[in-house]
């Protein structure tokens, strides 16, 4: 056991680094056009060059595109999609999970069977099949992932709601005649926030991995768009000529997902402490 002060000083270091990295990714995602205006400029005459050649700090890919600029521009699809998937699936999870957990009945049964069905196949594999066969662009893929991610969120929220619903403060509200909608969304939802937030961040990281897996296989993002998964797929053939074409986006995916996960762990720890202090 370390002294509390020592722990306090150490904990924020990883969190601070994570926040810093995510802030940088967010800036690139929002202002990518300004930071990396030449991300998509092709130069087929140069082709692939290594790091430092012709002013390309990290070299180019086989279309002659600058790896640095391409990677900066790729931040957008690395952040927007995962955030949407996580938020969308958690929204479904909170709505359906709260109602299913508190009211039970037919809806609970239906939601439960749906979850059984979707969870019988790994999400990434299902996403490959559905997105691949149905086609459609990035946003359709995001929607498919929301559908595939939501059952586990519904289950999680449902379990947390059932755990809370037997507590005296909820039962008192029932006896007082407080309307069910109010009990669910004024009493239950705020008290499962720790679970929701921790899982939301976990889902962002997981969605980033899933979306970049899909684009690595050529699904989701249109060909030629800046995307880390795509870059990796293209860079696979360039390991000899310019390994950075694959290594840089690979490290970016790992670092971003790690930062989100660390942040999630930190947030849930902090919220747990807050709950314990009640």
């Amino acid at each position: 056991m370390t002294r509390p002060s020592a722990r306090l000083r150490r904990l924020p270091a990883t969190i601070a680094l994570s926040v810093l990295l995510l802030a940088a990714v967010a800036v690139c995602a929002v202002a990518g056009g300004l930071i990396a205006p030449h991300a998509l400029d092709q130069d087929i005459y140069t082709g692939t060059v290594g790091a430092g050649v012709d002013g390309h700090l990290l070299g180019t890919d086989k279309l002659g595109r600058d790896i640095l600029q391409l990677s900066l521009a790729g931040a957008r699809s690395a952040l927007a999609g995962p955030l949407l998937v996580a938020a969308g699936s958690m929204l479904v999870g909170v709505l359906l999970g709260t109602v299913a957990g508190y009211r039970g009945g037919l809806l609970d049964q239906l939601v439960g069977r749906y979850a059984d069905l979707v969870l019988a196949l790994p999400a990434v594999l299902l996403a490959i099949v559905v997105a691949g066969l149905l086609g459609g662009g990035y946003w359709i893929t995001v929607a498919v992932l929301v559908v595939l991610f939501s059952p586990s969120d519904v289950r999680l929220v449902r379990a947390a709601v059932i755990e809370q619903a037997s507590r005296p403060y909820i039962e008192s509200a029932r006896v007082l005649g407080v309307r069910p909608a109010r009990i669910m969304f004024r009493h239950l939802t705020p008290n499962i926030v720790p679970v929701v937030v921790a899982n939301l961040l976990l889902n962002v990281a997981f969605a980033l991995v899933a979306l970049s897996s899909l684009s690595y296989l050529g699904l989701g993002v249109p060909p030629g768009a800046p995307d880390w998964g795509r870059q990796l797929a293209d860079g696979r053939e360039l390991l000899g000529d310019n390994p950075l074409a694959a290594i840089v986006p690979g490290l970016l995916i790992i670092a971003t997902a790690t930062a989100v996960n660390l942040l999630g762990d930190g947030v849930s720890e902090a919220l747990d402490r807050k709950v314990a202090a009640r």
Partner: peptide
């Protein structure tokens, strides 16, 4: 109306 046993979960935190 009813009052329960556990004071620590009696109120919405």
């Amino acid at each position: 109306q009813i009052v329960f046993q556990d004071p620590y979960s009696a109120l919405n935190p």
